[in-house]
Design a protein around this nucleic acid. Structure first.
Length: 405
DNA sequence: AGCCATGATTTATC
DNA sequence: GATAAATCATGGCT
């Protein structure tokens, strides 16, 4: 008897065997229970299936064995057969109980292990990144208030405000570029995440009909997916932060990064300085023009003059040669014409500047009787009018005799 | 590496 | 707010 039961599922399992389950007869319970005609015949011929045996373990065991066998062979069957069998299995009375047991086992084994890894310590990092992006104006509301704040914060100390708008606009445009990329990428990720999540959820729900999948497991799976995607987002945020930092360092923190001015720029500045040695305080207009001519900012012009004044004063001797050089230059340029090309202030004072500087460095007394030349003597001692005089005329450039403005 | 030149920043003053 | 003076930090030369 046993031999009759055992070999059959083992050997007669192919679709061709025709011995499968539920092939004849209607699908469903009957299919399940009709696995073994022989078996059934034994058990009163009833339709009882698993429970058909009042007395018996052996019978139940056989039934379970049969079911397992069916499951094992399900892939070898035709689609129709499989569908039929699936349906049959799905409708089996034991299914819910079996599934709940299996779910429980699953909960206790594999999934519980994952539980431990669930809590990731990437939250603080994410928060930091979020905060930073918010502060930089990349994340958060449009308008770029953060960027503006960052810019103003970075520049307020340096004293550059109106003149560096060029740099700011450049910075802002680059920042908004980064912002745009960040947001489109983020959106893409979010969309992909929701799409994938719903897809997986549907899949699991569908599968939960044929294999033990608890809602909790689905939840967990969703959480896993979210974590994966959020780690991608973290990467995105991180690289965005890096980009912003690079941008920042290039545009704002480049303050410390000193780059020597071009030779031409230094020449222009020196020419102005030595041709206005009596009062080396360029007016706002002059500063603007100098900045334009030198391709630097007004604050850089201010810095340059500040440094130059103090360094010149500290060590006049060292600058003598340079001063002579520029005095000659100015002389050559100014003499033939009547106007200095780029320093409106020196207009008409070309001869003065020349004589002034030359006088100073050659130690000659003022020649033309121009009082400005006289002042040079004072300059030699570092006694520029300083801020007393220039501010007197609102603008630092309350230049001496000539008032080219 | 050390030095000097030089642009930028900070602090104090007016 | 502009400037002087001190200081920092880097570039460039040796």
């Amino acid at each position: 008897m046993l031999q009759q039961q055992q070999p059959q599922p083992l050997t007669g399992n192919g679709p061709s065997s025709g011995r499968g389950l539920g092939l004849s007869g209607h699908p469903g319970m009957h299919a399940l229970n009709s696995v073994h005609p022989a078996t059934r015949r034994r058990s009163d011929g009833g339709d009882a299936g698993l429970e058909g045996t009042e007395n018996g373990h052996p019978e139940s065991r056989r039934d379970i064995g049969d079911i397992l066998q069916q499951i094992m062979t399900i892939t070898d069957q035709s689609l129709d057969e499989a569908q039929a069998k699936k349906h049959a299995l799905n409708c089996h009375r034991m299914k819910p109980a079996l599934f709940s047991v299996l779910c429980e086992i699953k909960e206790k084994t594999g999934l519980s292990m994952r539980n431990n890894q669930e809590e990731d310590s990437q939250d603080p990092q994410l928060i930091r990144l979020d905060n930073m992006l918010l502060a930089e104006g990349v994340a958060g509301p449009e308008k770029g208030g953060g960027a503006a704040a960052a810019v103003s914060a970075a520049t307020s100390s340096g004293g550059m405000s109106p003149d560096s708008t060029l740099e700011h606009s450049d910075y802002k445009s680059k920042l908004s570029q980064i912002r745009g990329i960040y947001h489109t990428e983020l959106e893409k990720y979010e969309q992909a995440c929701t799409e994938f999540t719903t897809h997986v959820m549907n899949l699991l729900r569908e599968q939960s009909r044929t294999r033990p999948v608890t809602p909790r497991e689905i939840e967990r799976m969703v959480a896993i997916i979210h974590r994966k995607f959020s780690s991608i987002q973290t990467q995105l945020k991180q690289s965005t932060c890096e980009a912003v930092m690079i941008l920042r360092s290039r545009f704002l923190d480049a303050r410390r990064k000193r780059r020597n001015f071009s030779k031409q720029a230094t020449e222009v500045l020196n020419e102005y300085f030595y041709s206005h040695l009596s009062n080396p305080y360029p007016s706002e207009e002059a500063k603007e023009e100098l900045a334009k001519n030198c391709s630097i900012t007004i604050s850089q012009v201010c810095n340059w003059f500040g440094n130059k004044r103090i360094r010149y004063k500290k060590n006049i001797g060292k600058f003598q040669e340079e001063a002579n050089l520029y005095a000659m230059k100015t002389a050559l340029v100014v003499r033939p014409g009547d106007d200095s090309p780029h320093t409106p202030n020196s207009t008409g004072s070309g001869s003065f500047s020349l004589s002034g500087s030359a006088d100073l460095f050659l130690g000659a007394p003022p020649v033309n009787g121009e009082h400005s030349a006289y002042q040079l003597g004072a300059q030699a001692n570092g006694n520029w009018p300083g801020r007393n005089s220039p501010p007197g005329g609102t603008s630092p450039h309350s230049d001496h005799s000539e008032n080219s403005d």
